[in-house]
Design a protein around this nucleic acid. Sequence first.
DNA 1: ACGTTGGTCGATCGAGCGTTCGACCTACCG
DNA 2: CGGTAGGTCGAACGCTCGATCGACCAACGT
Lengths: 217, 217
Amino acid sequence: MATRGSMAEKALSVSSEHEEKLGRLLTVAAEIFAEKGYHHASIRDLSRRAGVSLSGLYYYFSSKQELLFMIQDRSLRNVLAELEVKLRGIDSPEEKLRILVRNHVGFFAQNMAAMRVLTHEYDSLEGEYRTKIRNLRLRYSNLCTEILRDVRRFSGGGDIVPLNVATFGLFGMMNWIYAWYRPGSSVSVDRLADHLYRLFISGFIGRTGKSAGKRAG
Amino acid sequence: MATRGSMAEKALSVSSEHEEKLGRLLTVAAEIFAEKGYHHASIRDLSRRAGVSLSGLYYYFSSKQELLFMIQDRSLRNVLAELEVKLRGIDSPEEKLRILVRNHVGFFAQNMAAMRVLTHEYDSLEGEYRTKIRNLRLRYSNLCTEILRDVRRFSGGGDIVPLNVATFGLFGMMNWIYAWYRPGSSVSVDRLADHLYRLFISGFIGRTGKSAGKRAG
DNA sequence: ACGTTGGTCGATCGAGCGTTCGACCTACCG
DNA sequence: CGGTAGGTCGAACGCTCGATCGACCAACGT
């Protein structure tokens, strides 16, 4: 059906079929990488699970490294793009932060395999692949740091915790999810995101525990 | 030198030399695992870096899996043992929590390779090795959860965030350190631990960002 | 009818892997 | 001295890996 038509139509449909199959391969590969780790997973595993011959796979990517790169690149770009759309038109810094957390946690829950590969297998990247992913990650964490800066300025909170420590603390909380959270748990994804947001925000904008009227050092 | 003496003395000194060399091997192995990941690291790498023949290594461990297990087992036991000592005689739950964070972060900074392997390569363990490490981890996180429960009861804080979410959030913050912190940074280890403690505690015991007033208790 | 292009495959290569084995070399014991 | 035990080693085995190559096929334009 979709393969009939003019040259332009065909080129389009063919390339979209190509994209589609590549996408399927990347999804399956992400699952395998997430299960066994990049280095332990073999292209033969992917060949078996995807029902494609070993050599046939190499039509869609040129090396195992590139395969890993594509998974991380797509995940990160998706997270970033979606986040930037959602932030459009939002003024309140705290609301921005809440959106960031929800977006991040949401992606994790929805596509756990790829996100796990993203946080777990960064060091498996080499050379230019690593550099490119590093830059994307930097863009992401910088965006987060800027939001945190605004949150603090806006709330008049003190400079208790350095901005970069706070940023990494937040990412730590969010990225650690893959180690324990299973979708379909008693805590829904939205509630989880909300919990983490609340856990973070009030520690960030002020008040240390000791001023809670209990202890005198 | 140390090899002279009676049978008992020799047995002692020999076994302690054995322990010592095993310890060195584990340290080097942890560095390699931390660098390249468990599956990508080879026993031959260890052989080269430790200056011991390939087959000679197998006198000290019986398989690569056991090697990985020993690294994780020792790290976890050290962290736990040291923590239990430090907690002895402490009553204040908040102080207990502060000690836990300092202890954890301190171990990370002091022995980053092994701790990285501990948090990063749990899934590389198989069979009984995995079960044993899982139990140790459980003991650790349960200890943490209990402290958090006391903190909340003692501070009269609300039940905003479920205890297990809070526990994993805290571990996430602490374990994420290996992804960005480098010893000798501008933030000292003690200050880092303090930052993370403060970031966590006030988000945990109450008040969302909106109404950041003093609580009366 | 023919050439081209996109896609797939079996067979195979060379390299590296974890592990084993038997030989070997001390340093001690009786 | 001979014997035994702790420790070390080179060589090799069997296996899996990532990657390549040339053959093949169906669908298309001309």
